[in-house]
């Protein structure tokens, strides 16, 4: 006996995934070529992030931990670039470290985009201290002796010769820790190991996928500000009035999200139609 032909709704429910890939690719590429100019509303955690940096005392030092790698570049490079612009506008010393092996090169990429716009001097106003293996152990070790934990910067220059680190011994001499986090070790470990133990003001910019995990820390006041994902990075660029890659990429991400939402709705509509049709056929 010939097999009954599947209805068009049943065939559509098993749509070839290459068609889905094509729709997603077109949806992401079109806004990159022809931007839609969608609005960006600044949310409270992002505004708080900005306010915390604006409230730093002149001459104070901040520790930035760039704990991310190329996999999160699209989300965290815009946040890092905007953060460096923001910090370099202010009279603060910036100490940058990384607990991820690829972090220091990503920091260098971000600094390359920022350097031309400011008059800050390497070694005097900011320093890239490079990568140190050890995750939580490094975090705790910084609380006891920062120069001993990072005896030289990324280029091998002894930190004792760098004016930016003069008078900085431990967390006591640092006004705020800013974590740029894409996973482990990242914001969660910084909060657990450093924030409470050293009563350290802390803010975080993280990958979108991690943001839900860090909201409890923001609500509890352990994080004073939070930038979660590309959307929040676009908000940060907007609030700084320095629109960059995040704002430009928001259109593509928005359309990408709506295509996924469209597929969820379509998939469920087909699922319910086929389910009810099959139930009706069985009753007959």
């Amino acid at each position: 006996m010939a097999k009954p032909t599947a209805r068009w709704t049943e065939r559509l429910e098993h749509l070839d995934r290459r068609i889905i890939f094509l729709v997603v690719a077109v949806g992401i590429l079109v806004p990159l070529v022809a931007p839609l100019g969608l609005p960006v509303t600044v949310t409270e955690p992002v505004q708080a992030f900005r306010d915390q940096i604006d409230g730093l005392p002149p001459g104070s030092a901040v520790l930035v931990s760039a704990d991310w790698d190329p996999g999160s570049r699209a989300e965290l490079l815009p946040a890092t670039v905007a953060l460096f612009h923001h910090l370099f506008q202010r009279d603060v010393r910036v100490l940058i470290i990384s607990l991820w092996p690829a972090g220091p090169r990503m920091v260098e990429q971000a600094l390359a985009e920022v350097r031309g716009a400011h008059t800050k001097t390497y070694g005097k106003d900011y320093v890239n201290l490079g990568f140190k293996e050890g995750a939580e152990v490094v975090m705790v070790s910084l609380g006891d002796n920062l120069p001993a934990t990072f005896p030289a910067d990324y280029y091998g220059t002894p930190v004792s010769t760098l004016p930016v680190l003069r008078g900085i011994k431990s967390y006591k001499d640092i006004a705020m820790v800013i974590t740029l986090s894409a996973g482990y070790p990242g914001t969660k470990e910084w909060v657990q190991q450093v924030q409470d133990r050293y009563n350290m003001p802390m803010i975080s910019a993280c990958a979108g996928v991690s943001a839900p995990e860090y909201y409890p820390y923001y609500q509890a006041g352990q994080l004073k500000g939070l930038i979660g994902g590309l959307k929040a990075s676009a908000e940060y660029e907007t609030v700084l009035e320095r629109k960059g890659f995040a704002v430009a990429a928001m259109d593509a991400q928005a359309l990408g999200h709506y295509i996924i939402i469209g597929f969820i709705i379509l998939g469920n509509a087909l699922y319910l139609i086929n389910k009810w049709t099959n139930l009706g056929a069985r009753k007959e």
């Binding site: 995934r17 699209a74 996924i260 969820i264 379509l266």
Partner: peptide
């Protein structure tokens, strides 16, 4: 950098496909 970013970006395509097939009510 481009290779790792590409691997991560591919997620968008697989998430769209998985959302269509598996996200059922």
């Amino acid at each position: 950098v481009p290779m790792q970013a590409t691997m991560f970006s591919l997620l968008a395509f697989f998430i769209a496909s998985a959302a269509f097939r598996a996200f059922r009510v």
